[in-house]
Nucleic acid binder design. Structure first.
Length: 927
RNA sequence: GCCCGGGUGGUGGAAUCGGUAGACACGCAGGACUUAAAAUCCUGUCCGCAGAAAUGUGGGUGCGGGUUCAAGUCCCGCCCCGGGUACCA
């Protein structure tokens, strides 16, 4: 009998399930540890080999922590609202809930095969009304809250109303959309509608105009990645930028706290840096410019010290003052330019710096100090959403302004002296280092002092103020889609009101088609009876947009703590026990989206007293992406012939993706290919000289459409879950991206067989003995315990696997079959290959699960070495090794090495200048 | 464009603190066992050059510079690849 993974894995999966070893209860006698994976979107393509990378890595840690005596929460669920299911529904008419359910079942089946230690009794699904009831509940909390900048936290809207009743806006310091001013008397006299409108200006969930990709032909809003080169990906229709009334969440109120919190959590510096950049705090000033067309223009600048170098102003084309300042002579040109900009996405506008475009408005601003007339332009490189949507251009000290000035032949005026030669006609000098020149009262000051002095002067003259600006924008929260959480709001005379809590969940209605209405209303507008009937029997229309994909994923980690609670999102007790996630594993593509939104929701819930921690995820690890290795065949254009890779350049060819399952060692199975694509059955193949057809290869994202998806099922079937688990960890560091390649999998499979054979004789009989281990065997074991323990703590799983291989190789060479060695080894291996470890462990300790065994501890005494083989190098080049006692002092080592006959040879008669001795490391002789 | 990663043999990768570059695997080559194959086991394998071999010798961690007794590791300037860029999740 040989190692039989099918038999072993089936048996122990069943055992763990019936013994409920993965289920977790709150247990105050043990320390808690919460290990979480970013839950997947259950796509129709099923799980691919990239998904398990993070799941296995976190599973190993969860299992390790259980061995270490922690009460581990390790749940899993599904982010089951999303666009692909809706797309599929549009095409087939199939309700997204049905396809989603089917996909989830497939995911579950695939996850179950991998031996992951999830507590499935805690599963959550974002599209389940029992879950999204609480997503809606949290939304209503946002709606009922405002942000008090004095207490620096969210408060109930009642305290704002109380403030208005007492003082109006006087003394109010609140996050808002527009600054407002009114008295307590005014407030008392406002109509109900007016009051509600004012409150909306302060609520954390509010409505405002924001810009979207509008596709008139499809009658819907598109995501940026549904737009390619200004056309919709579906159908290729033109897409324009359009302003639309939308729900937003006031995340900007939390910008500073989101920034500060980063210092308290254990995430990679790279990830934190991404979030810092995304939040984008910058200190500067607002400066007002008078114009010859009436209205003042307020600009935001981080470089008020360069005000004297400003030679023109630029407004975002969408800026609200554009109409007011444009002179009649330029109105037509300005309109034409604005319609051009409408066709450009924000990303195009930022990415494309080579094409400089803009339009003069005919308006001139007045320089506040020199009185000089500065032309006012509109240009796409100024974005409406950042700062005030208007800038003072300083071409000498800003690259974008410089390019613009060259294109429109505007003056470039140096106001900072870098202290070395600089050709301002060629390039802007952007560094914040140097001395102010040509700048009146700040001339001679260094940049930081010049900035301060300028702001003081602006404030003194009443034409400017100090301002901290954040790049972080409020998060648009409405989607023109069907497959998302309905927003629990109804409208009375156009004013939004919250649905009473006892009406939650507001469930998705059934509709005939998953498309927008003919009038361009979102799909929910198709629903019959999409109304709220109040206590008096009045019917009010309900909100028709739904929540974005990130709504449900912003708090799911809290629901796992108490997943079936019908009365609250989670109980106070469960929250106090589990607190927050200790280890969060997921892809780096979520660096600024999900991870910022979830932190924001968490802080909001903290302000309201629902959670007891300020940050949701203490430690976070990004697993790398497993990429696909796409294969290509080359069709000769206009002919019925394919040409092999090495000869493709002799023809004009077109590369076509070919399914990677039809390729082995870069050789295409031509018959299988013809069967796969019958339209190519009569094609001719120009092959290599040996008659084979070689495909081209390219590393790409794993995707169904690229025919490069590798599914874990076949590997589990052929080699078993343990092999897949160990292999994926062996591939390299978890945070590194790499293409999937099964070439090395036999090495891992052989290792597990070799491990198994330590316990069984060639006939398959269990053959472990109680003999006392030798010192050498103990040394191998303890070396491995140390290495594996430390490497798990560092999440360096690939080197753990190497350590296991070395250990098993060495034990095999010694023919070691001793229980005192193999029992601790089984515990060490259990997090990585739980099935085979359980098989071997239970042979040694019948009826006891390896999952519950305590983690072995290494004995440093056994590992002590008293000699070290020093590499001896000459001028940094290693020449030979020298075995010396570890007890020698550096001086004795130096003497020993100089006495060594080989040393004389490399000295070649010269005297050493210097001998560097690092005890226990290296000897370097400088000649 | 901007922000964040990454680049080491034929391949995946190791080198945890600036201290022997290439651990552990895959692949390849040779050998043992076998009628044969598979499986297994053994040996070799960064690249040149010299040598029958032992060995000697030079080069080498994307490219170009620098710091240091010593650089894959630190610093400066480039090149290439991947991810994100606010309605994919």
């Amino acid at each position: 009998m040989e190692y039989n993974h099918r038999d072993i894995e089936k048996r122990w999966v069943e055992y763990w399930r019936t013994h409920r070893l993965y289920e977790t209860k709150e247990d105050p006698s043990k320390p808690k540890y919460y290990v979480l994976d970013m839950f997947p979107y259950p796509s129709g393509a099923g799980l691919h080999v990239g998904h398990p990378l993070g799941y296995i890595a976190s599973d190993i840690y969860a299992r390790y922590k259980r061995h270490k005596g922690y009460n581990v929460l390790h749940p899993m669920g599904y982010d089951s609202f999303g666009l692909p299911a809706e797309q599929y529904a549009i095409q087939t008419g199939q309700h997204p809930a049905i396809t989603t359910e089917r996909n989830i079942q497939r995911y579950r089946q695939q996850l179950d095969q991998l031996g992951l230690s999830y507590d499935w009794s805690r599963e959550v699904r974002t599209s389940d009304p029992a879950y999204y009831k609480w997503t809606q509940w949290i939304f209503l909390k946002f709606f009922d809250s405002w942000y008090n900048k004095d207490t620096d936290k969210a408060e109930h809207i009642q305290s704002l109303i109380a403030h208005f009743e007492k003082n109006g806006t006087h003394g109010l310091n609140a996050a808002c959309t527009e600054p407002l001013e009114f008295s307590a008397q005014d407030w008392a006299n406002f109509s109900e509608e007016k009051k509600q409108e004012i409150l909306l200006n302060y609520r954390l969930a509010y409505r405002s105009e924001s810009v979207v990709n509008w596709c008139p032909a499809l009658g819907t809003v598109l995501a940026n990645d549904e737009v390619k080169d200004g056309l919709s990906e579906r159908g290729g229709h033109p897409v324009e930028q359009k302003k639309m009334m939308q729900w937003s969440l006031r995340i900007s109120a939390y910008a500073q706290r989101l920034l500060n919190g980063l210092d308290t959590i254990d995430w990679s510096e790279a990830l934190k840096e991404s979030q810092r950049n995304w939040i984008g705090r910058s200190e500067g000033a607002l400066i007002q410019f008078a114009t010859d067309q009436g209205p003042n223009i307020t600009v935001f600048t981080t470089r008020p010290d360069t005000l004297f170098g400003s030679t023109f102003l630029v407004l975002a084309p969408e800026h609200e003052l554009v109409d007011a300042i444009t002179t009649d002579a330029y109105r037509a040109d300005v309109e034409a330019y604005r319609s051009y900009v409408k066709s450009r996405s924000e990303r195009d506008r930022m990415a494309d710096v080579k094409t400089v475009t803009g339009q003069f408005t005919g308006c001139y601003a007045i320089h506040p100090f020199t009185g000089e007339k500065l032309p006012v332009y509109i240009a796409e490189y100024v974005l409406a959403g950042y700062g005030t949507g208007a800038i003072m251009a300083v071409p000498a000290h800003d690259g974008r302004d410089h390019r613009f000035a060259l294109k429109f032949q505007l003056p470039i005026r140096q106001v900072i002296e870098p202290g070395f030669d600089w050709d301002f006609s060629k390039e802007a000098y952007e560094e914040k280092v140097g001395t102010s020149v040509n700048s009146d009262f700040i001339s001679g000051l260094q940049v930081p002092q010049a900035i301060q002095r300028m702001i003081e002067e602006l404030v003194a003259r009443g034409i400017g103020q100090r301002k901290v600006n954040f790049r972080l924008r409020d998060a648009v929260f409405g989607r023109q889609r069907y497959w998302g959480e309905p927003i629990p709001i109804y409208y009375k005379n156009g004013i939004p009101y919250p649905l009473p809590v006892d009406k939650l969940p507001l469930e998705l209605p059934t509709i005939d088609k998953y498309l927008p209405t003919e009038e361009g209303e979102p799909p929910l507008a198709r629903a019959q009876n999409w109304h709220y009937t109040d206590e008096d029997g009045n019917r009010w229309p309900l909100e028709t947009t739904t929540m974005p994909g990130w709504a449900g994923s912003s708090w799911y980690y809290l629901r796992y703590m108490d997943p079936h609670n019908p009365n609250a999102p989670f109980s106070k007790e469960a929250e106090l026990y589990w607190q927050n996630v200790d280890l969060y594993m997921g892809g780096s593509e979520h660096a600024t989206g999900h991870l910022l939104y979830a932190r924001f929701w968490h802080k909001f819930l903290y302000d309201l007293g629902y959670v007891s921690t300020e940050e949701p995820f203490q430690k976070l690890i990004n697993q790398g992406m497993i990429q696909g290795m796409s294969a290509f065949v080359y069709r000769i254009k206009g002919e019925k012939r394919f040409v092999t890779y090495s000869k493709k350049d002799q023809f004009d060819t077109q590369a076509l993706h070919v399914d990677v399952s039809l390729v082995e060692n870069n050789t295409l199975n031509i018959d299988a290919f013809k069967q796969w694509r019958s339209e190519y059955a009569d094609y001719e193949f120009i092959t290599e000289d040996d008659g084979s057809y070689k495909v081209g290869r390219e590393v790409e994202k794993m995707s169904k459409s690229k025919y490069n998806v590798i599914n874990p099922d076949d590997i589990v079937e052929k080699y078993g879950a343990d092999t897949l688990r160990v292999y994926e960890m062996f591939l390299g560091p978890i945070e590194l991206s790499k293409p999937w390649n099964t070439d090395g999998i036999t090495g891992v499979y052989n290792f597990l067989r070799k491990y198994w054979r330590l316990h069984f004789d060639p006939k398959g009989n269990f053959s472990v003995t109680d003999d006392e281990p030798t010192r050498e065997e103990l040394k191998i074991l303890h070396k491995t315990i140390k290495k594996v323990t430390l490497d798990i703590e560092n999440f360096s799983y690939n080197t753990c696997v190497s350590a296991f291989m070395i250990c098993v190789n060495e034990l095999s060479a010694l023919k070691c079959n001793k229980m005192q060695i193999l029992e601790p080894l089984a515990v060490l291996l259990a997090p990585f290959a739980p099935h085979v470890a359980e098989e071997c462990y239970q042979k040694m300790r019948p009826g006891e699960s390896v999952l519950l065994a305590p983690w072995p501890i290494w004995d440093e005494q056994i590992l002590v070495e008293n000699t070290f083989e020093y590499p001896v190098s000459f001028n940094g080049k290693t020449r030979f090794n020298l075995l010396l006692s570890k007890t020698l002092s550096p001086k004795e080592i130096e003497e020993a090495v100089l006495a060594e006959p080989k040393t004389a040879k490399y000295l070649d008669g010269k005297t050493p200048k210097k001998v560097i001795v690092v005890p226990g490391r290296i000897i370097n002789i400088v000649v």
